[in-house]
Nucleic acid binder design. Sequence first.
DNA 1: TATTGTTATACTCTATAACTATA
DNA 2: TATAGTTATAGAGTATAACAATA
Lengths: 163, 163
Amino acid sequence: MARKASDGAMPQTVTDAALSGLVGYRMKRAFNAIRADLLGALEPFGLRVLTFTALSLIGENPGLNQSQLAAAMAMERPNVVGVVDELERRGLVARDRGAHDRRSYALRLTDAGTALLSEATTVVAAHEAAMVDRLGPEARSALLALLAGIEEAAASGPSPDMS
Amino acid sequence: MARKASDGAMPQTVTDAALSGLVGYRMKRAFNAIRADLLGALEPFGLRVLTFTALSLIGENPGLNQSQLAAAMAMERPNVVGVVDELERRGLVARDRGAHDRRSYALRLTDAGTALLSEATTVVAAHEAAMVDRLGPEARSALLALLAGIEEAAASGPSPDMS
DNA sequence: TATTGTTATACTCTATAACTATA
DNA sequence: TATAGTTATAGAGTATAACAATA
């Protein structure tokens, strides 16, 4: 049986006072928690975070191509291919060859994709509300504003035009 | 030359109105921005986010073992091995065989580890301040409180005691 | 029998280089 | 030549199963 209370060789509780004042540390832990919850919410729909995000962006921007989708998702083009492949294989997204530029695909949701996105969005919003609304009625909007501000601050970051 | 302005086949700007109300989406983007900045701050020290976090936790809790470190870092024990290996190889952390329980190691910083942690912590804090303080004097503490609250809400989450 | 550290392994996400077909 | 999509590949980060040493 495990009995180390009388041992005295190691700390019983691990503290993180030095780290807990760092936004990056707190954000990683909070993000992991949110991500795990989000994953659970999406799992019944057979969606991952990436496929859900892509589905939502395509639904809101029908006709966009994969390069634009990659930029919107802040990821590289090659990694978008698999995401769209998966959505296309499941009949949720269609790739239409562009008439104007035959190199690119115009992405759009199928009827099945529109329906699944609608259901998944409802469930995801409910999951998030259950987590965030414990912190008070204004916590959600305050948090969203702060997070958006951080992303913006990073974009116009400490090393501007270092291209 | 690229000239698609007169094409009209695809949207010029991609919107994310539906997603931008979701905490998970905003958090992922903000976290990526913070993480990239953090990575840049740690790179001169030869540290990653994981090794910096481990270094800080060991410095604050000398004598803790790898299982406790894993729990504190919210990761699995096998993945801690490589992190401690790397820190030990660089002479920043020492593994002392425990006299009371010879299965475990008592982890502690070496003098070099203490010195490096001190320098890295200063630089990381300055980097974070440069990003976060643009949002106002109270943004940092407000954000930390909200993030801690989210993590706590997740811990006592919607599916309690589902072990 | 349970726990610590470990190895092996696999899966996801991400990033880069190089190819093809179109422009 | 430049761009869109693609392939192949490699690197992190994370997760589980199984093992030896110790309790």
